[in-house]
Amino acid sequence: MDEAVRMDAVSKVYGKGRGAVAALREVSAGIPRGRFTAVMGPSGSGKSTFLHCAAGLDSPTSGSVRLGDTELSGMNETKLTELRRQRVGFVFQAFNLVSSLTVEQNITLPLRLARTRVDRKWLDEVVERVGLSERLGHRPAQLSGGQQQRVAIARALVTRPEVVFGDEPTGALDTMTARDVLTLLRETVDAMGQTVVMVTHDPVAASYADTVLFLADGRIADAMDAPSSDKVAARMTRLGAWN
């Protein structure tokens, strides 16, 4: 199958000597293109590190990460940044937006930083899709939490990235708002063929994905296709997530 991201024997160790902590141990995994993948695991399982390494936010200690045909390991920070702004989009848990910029300025920020012309038609379509047409002139402080996450998703989509990464994108939202945001992500996969990878600890959120990867103790413990929240919850219980 065509893979958007390919990780081979990726390890990440924080610290040195006796205080060293291995967050990832020889992880090999592929993220299929045009699909919605969720990454789950208990606290400390290495799921955030997995995301950081896959997205080029952090460099693995050893192993290889490929985004499409590009090998990420060995790239310097500037090269990684340029790669991120052209080919990757991000949605974080919170504090996604620059408070001094308007919604529109926040959405077009990556383009501006890359000195790329704004494609008006595409921008309008993205804004339309996330439902923010009326809010372009507002500042982040004037928006609700859900609306802020929509802005973040729009910003992630505006560069037509190969992959959109989400780090607990619904972690700071209430159930109803979270459902809207997850539906939006699902739509981008179904309607636009976008590849989405999302780290979450919420089985309901994971049930919106096509595939769920389970991480435990820095290793891939399991994978599940066509998940339901019950099945995910049961699997997580066996991994000892809620002890």
Partner: peptide, 16 residues
């Protein structure tokens, strides 16, 4: 710091 980190994550190089 947080805002700068965000800019860095989104697309800004250290130079920018």
């Amino acid at each position: 710091q947080r805002e700068i980190a965000l800019l860095r994550a989104v697309a800004a190089t250290p130079r920018q």
